[in-house]
Simulated scan of single mutants.
Amino acid sequence: MEHLDQLESFDALYQRACERKGKQALEAMLGKPRTDAELKALGDDRYLAEMTKKIFQSGFVWRVVEQKWPAFEELFFGFDIDKVLLVPDEMLERKAADPAIIRNFNKVKTIRDNALMIDAVRRQHGSFGQFIADWPSDNIIGLWAYLKKHGARLGGNTGPYALRFVGKDTFLLSNDVESYFRQRNIISGAVTSKGSLQKIQDCFNLLKEQSGRSYQELSRIIAFSTGDNVPTET
């Protein structure tokens, strides 16, 4: 794989990130994903809630969504899958017009659509959390593709960000991460093309072999090692 020859070693990336942020500060910012056991224990309602939150935050001010989030939880029954599935079109439209939430009917419709996806998965796997926990992170781009195909408005960075926030170990294609792979001539063209995604996955897999770090940690180390990151005090 020629593209792997363009990738720096983990040690080189980590050293540069430490120089920029300071080792102690860097380690504090990396965070840890949830364990498989924790992902399995997480209720299916929390997966739907996080998907919905990321859909509404996409192209919008995240802070405003956070401020209105208690109203979302109340209006949509705490994102209980069974209750959401019973909501008829007329009620969904009324809820979408409630000023307590962000009034966007197209996005509100995804709540029921994604509940349908979660319901289909849990019927086969026992729970959506079981499905997410069992999916191997060395093919996380495959899970991204699954959410995009079977879910609603979970393409682009929305699905990956939802996974990150529920605690699934995943890298993210932030501007800094994408910029790094372009600077190293590892990818060209669309970052979301199948070829680009596979090359990026290959690189993260190699870095994980070298370091034993999670994909989340590696993603942030790459981001902090490049771009316009400003060093912090150690």
Rank of each mutant, 00 (worst) to 15 (best):
R213D: 11
Q216G: 03
L7Y: 09
T35E: 15
L92F: 13
L206C: 01
Y14E: 04
A28L: 14
W135A: 09
T226H: 13
E209M: 06
W62Q: 10
E74T: 12
T110R: 02
R123S: 10
F10T: 04
R112S: 00
D80S: 12
D36V: 04
K68D: 03
S127N: 05
A28K: 15
L207E: 03
G167N: 13
V177Y: 00
A133T: 12
L207Y: 03
K109W: 04
I140D: 03
F105A: 09
L7I: 14
G59T: 09
I132L: 06
R220N: 15
V87K: 02
V121E: 06
G195C: 00
C18P: 07
L26C: 11
N175H: 07
R220I: 13
G22K: 08
D134A: 15
A96K: 00
L39T: 07
L147W: 10
R94F: 08
H3N: 11
G212P: 08
Q67C: 00
N175K: 10
E27A: 12
H150T: 10
G78D: 05
R46K: 15
T232E: 14
D202Q: 03
A223C: 07
Q57T: 13
I55H: 06
Y180H: 02
K54Y: 03
I55E: 06
W69S: 01
D119P: 02
P99Q: 10
T226I: 04
D113Y: 13
S9I: 02
A162M: 10
E73Q: 09
G212N: 11
D176M: 10
F105K: 14
E73A: 02
R103W: 09
E2V: 11
A49D: 13
A37K: 09
A162V: 00
P70F: 05
Q24S: 14
Q24R: 13
I200K: 00
A49R: 09
C18N: 09
N175C: 00
D45P: 00
F79P: 06
R46H: 14
Q6Y: 09
Q210M: 04
L206P: 01
L75T: 08
L42A: 00
W135D: 01
L206R: 08
V230Q: 11
K168E: 06
P99K: 12
W62M: 04
E90C: 01
K23G: 01
L4Q: 02
L30E: 13
Y146C: 01
S225A: 15
G31F: 07
S214H: 14
I221K: 05
L154N: 06
R20L: 12
V166N: 03
Y215D: 03
